[in-house]
Simulated assay, not measured.
Amino acid sequence: MLKGFFKKTKYVTTSSPLYEKPPTPNIPDGMWIKCTACEQIVYKKDLESNKKVCPHCGYHFRMTARERMDLIIDEGTFREFNQNLFTLNPLSFPNYEKKISEQQEKAKLSEAVVTGTGKICGEETVIAVMDSHFLMGSMGSVVGEKITRAVEEATKRKLPVVIFSTSGGARMQEGIFSLMQMAKTSAAIAKHDEEGLLYISVLTDPTTGGVTASFAMLGDIILAEPGALIGFAGPRVIEQTIKQKLPEGFQKSEFLLEHGLIDEIIPRDHLKETLGKLLRLHKEVG
């Protein structure tokens, strides 16, 4: 009766469709982006059509200099100058020339700032836009020279100047040469101010180091994008120095506005309109 009850049963593996591994979705790389702030997945084309602002939480993604120009300058009015200034290696820093060459190829720029003239809502202005995609927007001798020449051109032509800052600070490969740019750019802005001309500084994420310690904070009007990191030294360095825990949101543009370091925070979709109004008002008053 129990014969065969304890006999080991042989099982046969089959390739039933019910147990087949589902095919991997064929999604091309780069179509979707994960938001840094809310971690929602955003369709890349939707993000680009929304001026690179997350539609879920409003986080402002970083823009290239060219993207910023397309957003701010009236179509067909931008005229670039000093685009043929190229970085040398004054301190013979190892592999610096190679690094610069790689950045130029990657970012499609000669340096970390683009300068020129153009119209914002019909108002002629000199504009300089830094690009964090080129060595984190670090300020070397060419970046400082291009910004200085842009301000001097604005002074010569009696035009306002708008500078979009984004930077990790001075460029270490150029040592004292990069630090000298802080004084040079500040001196050019002082002369521009003496002529009674307008300088609007727009701070974007991140604006730190020597750029913050010089021209970025010298604007007659200082604007910032929401959530931008703005400061000189990083939070960790400050905490180690003062031996205290920093407040929540320290060095964000909202914190700086609350404490009077900047004049206003302007969302990206209102930035061009705001700049146009400020330029027009100053022109009428002047």
Rank of each mutant, 00 (worst) to 15 (best):
K156S: 12
L256W: 04
R62N: 09
Q251C: 10
E39D: 14
V12M: 14
R68L: 10
I221Q: 13
A187P: 03
Q240C: 12
E258K: 15
P235H: 04
G76T: 09
Q240W: 10
I262K: 06
C121E: 15
I100K: 02
F250L: 08
T64C: 01
L198S: 03
E80G: 10
T115F: 07
A65S: 11
K191N: 13
G169Q: 01
V161G: 04
I200F: 09
G249C: 05
K21N: 14
F86P: 03
S214Q: 00
E39C: 14
A150H: 03
F232I: 12
P25E: 02
T14N: 13
T155N: 12
G30F: 04
K119T: 09
I27V: 11
F78T: 01
V12Q: 15
H259K: 14
P17Y: 14
T185Y: 03
P160K: 09
Q104G: 01
G196Y: 06
M136K: 14
I163E: 02
R66Y: 09
V237M: 11
F86V: 07
S132P: 08
K52D: 05
E48N: 05
E254Y: 09
S110F: 07
E102R: 10
R68Y: 09
D74Q: 09
V211D: 00
F134W: 04
L279I: 12
G209Y: 02
S214H: 02
N82D: 11
L257P: 03
E145A: 12
A128W: 01
T64Q: 00
M31E: 14
K119D: 07
T77D: 06
L109V: 00
I222C: 07
Q181H: 08
L281Y: 14
H60E: 08
L257C: 06
A233H: 10
L197A: 02
M1G: 15
G76M: 11
